[in-house]
Design a protein around this nucleic acid. Structure first.
Lengths: 117, 117
DNA sequence: TTATGTGTACTAAATGAGATATTACACATA
DNA sequence: TATGTGTAATATCTCATTTAGTACACATAA
């Protein structure tokens, strides 16, 4: 569920951050659902607790989750559209970078069809 | 011409690498055109010569440029389609990451129209 | 030949982000 | 009371990136 890629150039804490967003958007983590505890998730991922804590703190700063001392961390009120918007803004950057190389928007659109998960 | 972003999380040598590709794709650097010398470009960018050299060496490894000892570095034979393909493969990764969040291909395609350089 | 400009190689050091190790504290709750 | 929670703090390690400096071999024009 929280699989991460140690090889990736994307920092672990950022992968966790993104994973939580992904799970929320997909409806797997619903409003007020409790996230795995820092210590449990760190064991599950074979990662230092500080790393998970950092991800959770960033998520809280973004108001995506809220953490209660002694209780745990939970999913905030969800505005799916706002979350999607945030993802799409990252996508914009990628598109912009690609266009910069001189490719056309049509080439990009056609390309999307061929992409498979 | 070779503007780079010191703030970026993308390494300088990689920005230079990408810049050269961009200039080739756009037809600004044509076949057998000479690149700025390692020392000159390093001065222009306020960057260590080693950093430029690293970019050039990577470009040569990729057969995008060729370097002649004592002469300089030059643009290789160009297969624009192959270069585009390489760019698009990076784009694929980005698309895949975005789809992973649960967005649809149509949402992505529509989004592209709104992007401006 | 000489001077200058080219790529290349090498070693050493500085930097910074990321991750780890460890301990500790305050809080909630069964 | 015991256990589990988030949080904080400090020190350390690792690694990629970048810098600094020097040196060598080659090409070429003066």
């Amino acid at each position: 569920m929280f699989d991460i890629d140690i090889q990736s150039r994307i920092p672990i804490y950022e992968q966790i951050y993104n994973k939580v967003i992904e799970l929320i958007i997909k409806g797997i983590l619903v409003e007020n659902a409790q996230l795995p505890s820092v210590r449990n998730l760190s064991k599950e991922l074979n990662v230092n607790p500080n790393t998970v804590a950092k991800a959770y703190q960033e998520l809280e700063r973004s108001k995506i989750i809220y953490s209660l001392s002694g209780r745990g961390s939970f999913v905030s009120e969800i505005d799916r559209e706002k979350m999607k918007e945030r993802i799409l803004e990252d996508f914009d950057i990628c598109v912009r970078e690609t266009l910069q190389f001189g490719l056309t928007k049509d080439e990009l659109k056609n390309r999307i069809d061929g992409v498979s998960l």
